[in-house]
């Protein structure tokens, strides 16, 4: 990644032009042709630095509910637990963390009740009980952009 890539990446994250020819506009700002910008963006995607380019929706405004879950899963059953949890499309993040509660995942579903239902299913399928369901009551910040 060179300085131009960093500039492009910052612009793609913060100021993606919603207009007919967005990559030409970015090119104007960084002094590159549209084709050169597209080539660099493709490379950043191939390298896995860019996961995707698109919209991030506000879960609540679409009428969905979300929560953060934590589970205490014995080492030998982690593989199965992860498979079951990850099979739900509403599970968007799932990490192992350094705590007795070792598996932490986020869950989005169409309603509060649906979240409860899914967690019940996960407990039934995996035999792991006592999964914590910690709902956000206050949102102080959500800004997943990274300065390059």
């Amino acid at each position: 990644m060179d300085e131009t890539d960093r500039k492009i990446l910052n612009m793609l994250q913060r100021d993606f032009p919603i207009e007919a020819e967005p990559f030409r506009r970015i090119g104007e700002k960084v002094g590159l042709s549209e084709a050169e910008v597209l080539k660099r963006v493709e490379k950043l995607k191939d390298e896995g630095i860019i996961r995707r380019i698109g919209a991030v929706f506000v879960t609540k405004k679409l009428g969905y509910a979300s929560t953060l879950c934590a589970a205490e899963v014995p080492e030998e059953t982690i593989g199965n637990f992860i498979d079951v949890v990850n099979s739900y499309k509403g599970v968007t993040h799932n990490y192992r963390r350094n705590h007795r509660y070792n598996i932490w995942f986020t869950l989005i579903a169409s309603s509060d009740d649906e979240i409860g239902k899914i967690l019940g299913e996960i407990e039934d399928k995996t035999g792991i009980s006592g999964i914590l369901d910690m709902r956000a009551t206050k949102q102080f910040k959500i800004d997943a952009t990274f300065d390059m």
């Binding site: 630095i49 860019i50 996961r51 991030v56």
Partner: peptide, 14 residues
């Protein structure tokens, strides 16, 4: 309804 439109980066790789 849309919070953000643009690139989502993999922070580890970035």
């Amino acid at each position: 309804i849309i919070r953000k439109f643009g690139a989502i980066v993999r922070h580890r790789k970035a």
